[in-house]
């Protein structure tokens, strides 16, 4: 029995580098608006999202909510689904980040604030940095 366990562990160890390569977790992602979408606010620039920091703090499915064991790795960028140009539809680019759901940036940060934590929340000081000079 012990030998079988050792063999199984060794097999899993062999698989580990493959798994890490397949699911490389980017440290930073620059979120760009899909080209066909008109900008809502002229001053909002592409947002640099600290993906690695969020990946350490949360499970993958906190944000990649369409992933399941069967679809692992198929739903990688949010814009794969959230790419519509409207502001109200859940599948819009805007609502991917500004929805009430905890899968979304703003929804999750709001819930954390309710719990007494201090994630960034201000539009111009949180994600979309804007100084007076701009």
């Amino acid at each position: 029995m012990h030998r079988i366990r050792c063999l199984a562990a060794a097999f899993l160890l062999l698989l580990l580098p493959t798994a890490l390569l397949a699911y490389e977790v980017p440290k930073e992602i620059i979120i760009k608006r899909p080209e066909k979408n008109q900008p809502l606010a002229v001053w909002v620039a592409p947002v640099t999202f600290p993906h690695g920091k969020h990946a350490v703090l949360n499970s993958c499915d906190s944000c990649h909510h369409e992933e399941s064991d069967r679809t692992l790795g198929q739903f990688l960028p949010c814009t794969q689904c959230h790419n519509k140009p409207t502001v109200t539809e859940t599948s819009s680019f805007y609502m991917a980040w500004h929805n009430d759901s905890t899968h979304s940036c703003l929804g999750c940060h709001r819930k954390m604030r309710e719990a007494g934590k201090m994630p960034p929340l201000s539009c111009t000081r949180g994600c979309h940095k804007k100084t007076e000079a701009q």
Binding site: R113, M118, P119, S122, G126
Partner: peptide, 13 residues
């Protein structure tokens, strides 16, 4: 409590 202080930009860390 979580939204105060008012009349100034939201309090950040």
């Amino acid at each position: 409590d979580q939204l105060a202080p008012f009349n100034r930009d939201v309090r950040e860390k």
